[in-house]
Design a binder for these strands. Structure first.
Lengths: 359, 359
DNA sequence: CTGAAAGCGCTTACAG
DNA sequence: CTGAAAGCGCTTACAG
């Protein structure tokens, strides 16, 4: 290791060429004569030279950094998803020579304030948004201030079609997941299939609920639909209470909006004792808890979502083009022995991901 | 929002002062006459001016960024700790005007290669290390290449005393945690207290094991110590097997090196049926799973650890000083009703953190 | 206390 | 194809 970090200047002097030639070898190699290119490239490698990020940043006005807020993970049960997403995001961003500038924020307002500051300091080129929700103030802010971004999550809104969103987004088709597991349970002979829901909003919770509703309507018409579902907070204790009520109403299987709810449902079923009939439960997110406890669940293609997010954002930073919207299909994982036999063999064990683009 | 981002230059021209004065107002306000300072400060605020990070970086040769590898979270049960740590790290780094440059790496070698590249590009000022272990190649590399860092985790080594480490570290006193819960179980009348261990290495696993050993020796001498402990991988299934063996050997309570192991132990106890005597189990890390299932555990002061890590590193970047070593005390959380009554009231429910510095 | 100057390391037109 | 020049935005001695 040389005491002094090599620079374009020092390398050029050493090689008897101009700074510019060294820079060209790195940035526009085709413009340099092959013998020169090779001689310089070898010297660069030998010196372990890596261009200073600061110099490039100042000159090009591009930080090559992407802002990302680390969402506080209160319950932690669903934390793994965010974890994996972040991990893949970091890996793929690096592969495209982008850095992740991670920050924490206590509220959405603070998150926006951070974007404003980072933007003013020319500190980030773009943003990855997670946990989009109804009334999301971040999206209009980013659009208005012309800070490029991609969101993991549709732009939920009562009025507008997400396909009209003026920005790139990637999301997982939650309705397809709950629809698919509900049909799977139907194929296993269940008709009174309950649904444990978050307070229904026209966003992630409503989407997952809609899948179950669709499958139930197609299977049996509108009969009993309201009586078969219950709302509760994303909390084990409250879910246990709500699941208990559904069990009393005679449900024979339960689909849940999250693994946290499934955990509560599991406790409610356990509480009835081993003499009571078995009630299959399916959660959502396929968290480590579900895996550890052998609960069935619906796995999100998180890795794929992260990669797609990075590539959409990186492409947006490179070229002007119309926004793209990508919806990924989740895959059910059946661990409950009663329903593990595959009436739909294609759904079991393998990760399936389909996407469609709405340009 | 002005179309053009304001600069030191544009602000100075507008105000009829020199660039330097504007810079001084931000960086050395005491050197500017009060009326000027106030006039300039007001204009800065009004313009929403934030100094360009690139300019400062290039000029000062400080990126104000801290490198941190996002550890892959394979099992996910313990993920919450890393999550919380990262969150607090981000928050406190920002408060000191430092950014977190997050990256992923598939191996320790790749992690080191990333440090090398980031260092060559002058991209980071320092590093936060997590998951230190025996034979950790990162520490000597960072020391040798003079890249400032703090580690969350002692520098484990067979020979050396961590107090002699030539770098700052923060760690949690695992032995104090297992020692304390073992004594708590003793105070509740247990003498055959088993221990479920990771393969014993002189690092985190060995540290936690040592606490149990110490409490058992002081309580009952060396009797049976080997027979009361079992080793297993950090895996629910293997833990269940190992816990089953210990139960057959007649243990009446179980202390575990992690919540994952505690989950396995829980399953082993459950498998004996509700007629069998109750066996209290204590895990380690107080993960969301433990909370959701009502398992007792030992909570690490993660928030404190993250804050301390940032402040040690930030201080090291500001001034030359001898390395500091800070050991934080974890706090037992007893959720098992049989042992929840406090023979040691100070250990229950409240977060206790003590630290001592070894300069 | 204030202002003119230098220079951090890079890339990108531009002239040869 | 190669090299001399300009300039991105900032901070820090230094002269007044």
């Amino acid at each position: 290791m040389p005491a002094q970090r090599p620079t374009l200047e020092s390398l050029a002097t050493e090689l008897g060429v101009s700074r510019q030639t060294v820079s060209n070898v790195l940035n526009r190699p085709s413009v340099v004569a092959e013998p020169t290119r090779e001689r310089v490239a070898t010297a660069i490698r030998a010196a372990g030279y890596v261009p200073s990020r600061a110099g490039r940043h100042l000159r090009t006005q591009r930080s090559h950094a992407i802002g990302i807020r680390l969402m506080p993970n209160f319950d932690g049960i669903n934390g793994h998803i965010g974890d994996t997403f972040l991990h893949e995001l970091a890996e793929h961003a690096h592969r495209s020579d982008y850095r992740l500038a991670l920050f924490a924020a206590a509220s959405e307002a603070e998150e926006i304030a951070t974007y404003a500051r980072m933007r003013a300091a020319n500190e980030i080129d773009g943003v990855v948004l997670t946990s989009t929700h109804i009334g999301d103030a971040r999206i209009p802010w980013l659009v208005r201030h012309d800070l490029p971004f991609v969101s993991f999550g549709r732009p939920w809104s009562r009025d507008a079609d997400p396909a009209d969103a003026p920005h790139d987004w990637v999301d997982v088709d939650g309705a397809a997941g709950t629809d698919s597991v509900t049909r799977h349970l139907q194929a296993h002979g269940h008709s009174r299939i309950g649904y444990l829901s978050w307070p229904a909003q026209p966003d992630v919770g409503g989407d997952r609920l809609a899948g179950w509703q669709r499958a139930m309507r197609e299977g049996f018409g509108d009969r009993d639909l309201a009586a078969l579902s219950a709302e509760c907070a994303d909390d084990v204790t409250d879910a246990r209470r709500a699941a208990g009520e559904l069990l009393e109403r005679g449900v024979t299987a339960l689909v849940c909006a999250s693994d946290t709810l499934a955990l509560g449902a599991h406790a409610a079923v356990d509480a009835r004792g081993s003499a009571a009939p078995h009630v299959p439960i399916v959660g959502f997110d396929d968290t480590p808890v579900a895996r550890a406890l052998g609960l069935s669940s619906v796995a999100q293609p998180v890795v794929r979502a992260a990669r797609t997010s990075v590539s959409l954002l990186v492409r947006r930073l490179a070229e002007e083009r119309p926004p793209e919207h990508i919806l990924l299909r989740p895959s059910p994982v059946f661990r409950d022995s009663e329903i593990a036999t595959p009436p739909f063999p294609e759904n079991v064990g393998t990760i399936q991901e389909e996407e469609f683009t709405q340009p």
